[in-house]
Design a protein around this nucleic acid. Structure first.
Lengths: 248, 248
DNA sequence: CAGTTCCGTGTATGACATACACAGTTAACG
DNA sequence: CGTTAACTGTGTATGTCATACACGGAACTG
């Protein structure tokens, strides 16, 4: 298992994300840098959502004109990747909690979900995963540490981390959508009321029962905002536990 | 548990999706209808992806001008919801397979993933869930049937179906992104090669091991396109099995 | 010092979703 | 049955967006 000395050509965005993009030395001293651009973009996203992050808007925020941004980032997609990596910097402060792989993994999974909540605009990203950049790879590194001692092979470990992190994202995305729908106005109707309105007993006997049993009711305000995610995590952790037992 | 006689005001999109939007009777006979618009939009999406579905493009496909579409759908978001519902019509032919709740639920979960694959543009939808429209509610109805006999309460059943269907979507989304990245050109580099390039042993000991052990290698071409999804499903089904045992 | 590279600006382009006014068609109403 | 109202589709316009490209000036290189 020898490391190759050949340098692999990283995709352009990753070159930038790993600090490997050659920066020219001629020409005027830049008044603008990529870190300032990314920070401004993240601020706008935090304040107003990802849709508010246009190149013109970011440029204005850093005091330059729109087209100057393109001297520092190739395109908007690259800026989005940079933003995603920047927002994952909480990994630097994160520490696994617990004595068992299960409790450590749970703490990791909760941290994933909380990190997204702190930068909720991530749910609006056009891509499904963060770039293979320093911060997200550090999250994976820590996740692998959580799984030390399980006896699982590395491939399964990676798949498990992928399962959990993808679920954190989509759970946050669904919660965000639901909240946006609620924010639309006073005439919003909740899930159960809609079900009761549309599911006839003859055509949807199961859903009809569910609708009228109150089982689909949305959680009371003030409760655990992550209740749904915790349920899902328990299911997944139980399944992982089964996998761990089987590998022993 | 009496049904209320009060009609709840559905959100405007759902009124249309459930065929409850009042259609006026005065004025010229329409040359255009919402079904034609949706069908055209779905065709374009199937052929070229969701980004190709602009109002102008759809209008051209049905032989009308852009603004005429707005006589039939409120806005583009509504059209997207109509498309999502239309694409879920495979539920009409679907039948659960198996003698146990587990095998039935597995068949349901696979069908979810396959349905998305057939209309892969769904992964590019701006919203995280389909509308509460006839087809997606029918999928839920069938999913609840799969869980008959588990003894789970209705709330847990709904959460389980939500877990699986959301996972089908994000798994498809990640697979789509990966494929798009591959299609970018001959200079694309795979996941493992990137890991090997960027993860130094000192800083990322776990990922370094994983990268050089081959555990993160992408599946060979020609294998099961749903291998990752199946792994995830086994984990989730094992976890659900634990939940079922506990509820007995 | 001439040539090259690089930064930021200004201008332009094409694409997009959608507002709004107009003219003609059809139904409702008294 | 004539008038009014509702409705359809068109044409025009608007503002926003990402990004191409040319220009002038700053800074480096040989």
């Amino acid at each position: 298992m020898a490391e190759s000395d050949d340098q692999v050509a990283l995709p352009p965005s990753l070159e930038l994300l790993w600090g490997r993009r050659d920066v020219g030395r001629r020409g005027p001293k830049p008044g603008l840098d990529v870190d300032s651009i990314v920070a401004a973009a993240v601020d706008i996203a935090n304040a107003e959502g990802l849709a508010a992050v246009s190149m013109a808007r970011v440029a204005k925020a850093v005091g330059f004109t729109t087209m100057s941004l393109y001297r520092h980032v190739t395109n908007k997609d690259e800026l989005l990747q940079l933003m995603w990596n920047a927002s994952a910097d909480g990994v630097m402060e994160f520490e696994l909690e617990g004595d068992t792989w299960r409790s450590r993994l749970l703490s990791w999974a909760m941290a994933q979900r909380e990190a997204i909540t702190r930068n909720i605009w991530i749910v609006q990203m056009p891509m499904a995963t963060p770039p293979l950049a320093p911060n997200s790879l550090r999250w994976m590194e820590v996740g692998l540490e959580a799984l030390d001692g399980t006896g699982l092979d590395d491939g399964d470990k990676m798949r498990i981390l992928g399962l959990i992190s993808s679920h954190a994202l989509i759970d946050a995305r669904m919660a965000y959508d639901a909240q946006q729908a609620k924010g639309g106005g006073a005439d919003q109707v909740d899930y159960t009321a809609i079900l009761r309105e549309v599911v006839e007993e003859e055509r949807f006997p199961q859903l009809h029962r569910v609708a009228w049993s109150g089982a689909a009711d949305e959680p009371e305000p003030g409760g655990d905002p992550f209740a749904e995610y915790r349920f899902d995590l328990e299911v997944m952790l139980d399944g992982i536990e089964t996998l761990v037992e089987r590998s022993r």
